[in-house]
Amino acid sequence: MTGPIGFGGGLPLATVLIHQRSGTTCEAANGFCPNWIAHNFSRYETPLLQHVVLTVVSVAIGFGIAFALALLAHRRRWLAGPVTGVTGVLYTIPSLSFFFVLQPITGRGSLTAIVALVSYTLLIIFRNVTTGLAGVAPETRDAGRGLGLSDRQLLWKVELPLALPEIIAGVRVATTTTVGLATLAFFAGAGGLGAQINADPVFKSNVVVAGGLCVALAVVLDIVLLALQRAVTPWTRAVPTA
């Protein structure tokens, strides 16, 4: 805790001064400076991109794993308990500890960050897929069987489409959560907007822009997923025509 700047003084990542702390300008007072933001916006582009990649890759991998587990658990009910238990533990471990516990195994960098972030999405997506599938009305399932659908056809043609809103809702929650957790990914050496915040956390302009970008990213991704959900589930908006 020797240096006056940056929280991550002891971290092996270089703490960069974002601006010169001299003079009587807005920047020197660590204020909120629109001018400074306008001129320095480009320095947030790379961290933002890193953040997007971390989030999208983690959610995509997490979805693949959780979805497969959920389908398995849908066939073999006894799996649901253990899977929920294990993913629940992963979900509970604070991301910060997770990054450091993983580091001896996966090293510093994006791999560690992604492994940790993936593990957080598992519980959310798994739970939503299984509740979505369980929420399909028994009579609908019955009708499907009565029409001669095989178990596999029933799953892909009836159960999964009907579970879609719930599934996508899970992905949405997982995505916004991951955007938030990825702000700590710099502890694992994976950069992202968190690194930018950490570079100068007392400079209001910096915190507002980097934090704001995090929120904006979460909101944009959420809207994209919401639009996707609406596009693929037209029947949920059907209104009886008189």
């Binding site: 938030g180 934090g211 995090c214």
Partner: peptide, 8 residues
């Protein structure tokens, strides 16, 4: 959820 705790 959208506001990261670190940013907050």
């Amino acid at each position: 959820r959208a506001v990261p705790s670190f940013a907050l």
